[in-house]
Design a protein around this nucleic acid. Structure first.
Lengths: 215, 215
DNA sequence: TATTTAAGTTAGGACTACCTAAAAATAATT
DNA sequence: AATTATTTTTAGGTAGTCCTAACTTAAATA
């Protein structure tokens, strides 16, 4: 297991890879790597029984992959909690730190941190912290990029990425924001949405819209 | 900068690379890599102005390399302090965790940790924690392996390595232990020493003796 | 159905850091 | 001084992960 494989597992999980097939392209966009790199890495992960790959159809996590994903989410969110609660970080600044720390966190360290933090249930942006046995309810699959024009949706969750969160924060897009999708510009152009609360129109990049989950 | 380059800088620093020339072999032993790998890595680090290399003579840190080394020591010892003080780790168990965390610690994170810990001066095994400006007194250069037979010395410091510390702990060798060096076995064999406090004879492996500093 | 576009896969190359084995340089011993 | 031993460097390879470009498959459109 390497940090990169962990990142692949995490993004597949975050995109809903336990219930639906995730496309090569979604992963490539999420990790900002070339499509060819994804095919190659996925092939290795198939060998290791972390994912199931149906060529041209999509990728899903195995039970093993699923477990690892939940452990990573747990470690990530424990660090975020520590950074905000104890080190007095701003919520918007914790993602990148947690992103790298999670890969270097032994199970022992995670357990010690969990106890130290007082067995917290939620991370600073409201995500559920999976418990020690890997129980984890959270779910929300539809990606903003896939919402058809004219529909009204509520933003449920945004993938934990520092630059993305800063970008979306500047645009005024966050969890619980209600929006109407107006138009998808071609050639991977922005998705134009209207914020219901004030009627403002916002352009959300194609890439960002793949990392925003809606209800 | 990569974690491996950081490890090279750290070991050169710990072996005294600001005051004397460190040999290729000392680094190879300290990091447990092949001599050829050291030559190669050092060549890259020369390019980056991290070290100065006189072929066949030895390697020293540049001022830049020295600064980076001190930052790494600082981050390492801050993590050790956190692990012992707050997460209730045993002192012998903190090394490997700190070893990996230090490479993923931004300056911002180090500063926040320093404040959170109450600006500590010493790490759990008594090492000085360099301050925010990189001031760091500590020094001790002579390696046990280089002590000539018949001499009596005191153990000053042991390089932070989990397996090494466990090994030496089992042998009853730690900081402040006074010993007489009796014999160096050939072919990189053990160094035989006598503990002055009880007269016990101990075999310390060639490799371990390169990671023990004496006064 | 034919054509075009998009997505996925394959192939060939780059980079980092490691290794072993052989050759060169230096140091130690006879 | 000659020989032997040790250390360092050089040369050629491996593994992991990335890339671009070309090719294949599938889906969408005309």
């Amino acid at each position: 297991m390497t940090p990169m494989k962990e990142d692949y597992i995490k993004i597949i999980f975050e995109l809903g890879g336990t219930e639906r097939k995730i496309s090569n392209k979604e992963i490539a966009i999420g990790l900002d790597v070339a499509a060819g790199s994804v095919t190659e890495m996925v092939a290795k992960m198939v060998e290791e029984k972390l994912v199931i790959h149906e060529p041209y159809a999509g990728i899903t996590l195995t039970e093993l992959g699923h477990q690892l994903a939940i452990e990573l989410v747990r470690k990530h969110r424990l660090w975020e909690t520590f950074l905000v609660d104890d080190l007095k970080y701003e919520v918007a600044d914790v993602h990148s730190e947690a992103e790298v720390l999670e890969h270097q966190t032994s199970d022992k360290l995670a357990a010690a941190l969990y106890t130290f933090l007082g067995k917290p249930e939620f991370c600073p942006h409201g995500g559920v912290i999976p418990d020690e046995d890997g129980n984890y309810p959270e779910s929300s699959n539809a990606v903003l990029a896939d919402v058809v024009d004219g529909q009204t949706v509520e933003i449920a969750r945004i993938i934990d990425n520092h630059d993305l969160l800063i970008y979306l924060h500047d645009l005024g897009v966050m969890a619980h924001t209600k929006i109407e999708v107006l138009k998808h510009e071609p050639f991977e152009g922005p998705i134009i949405v209207k914020r219901l609360v004030d009627g403002d129109q916002i352009n959300i990049s194609f890439k960002a819209a793949h990392n925003i989950f809606v209800q």
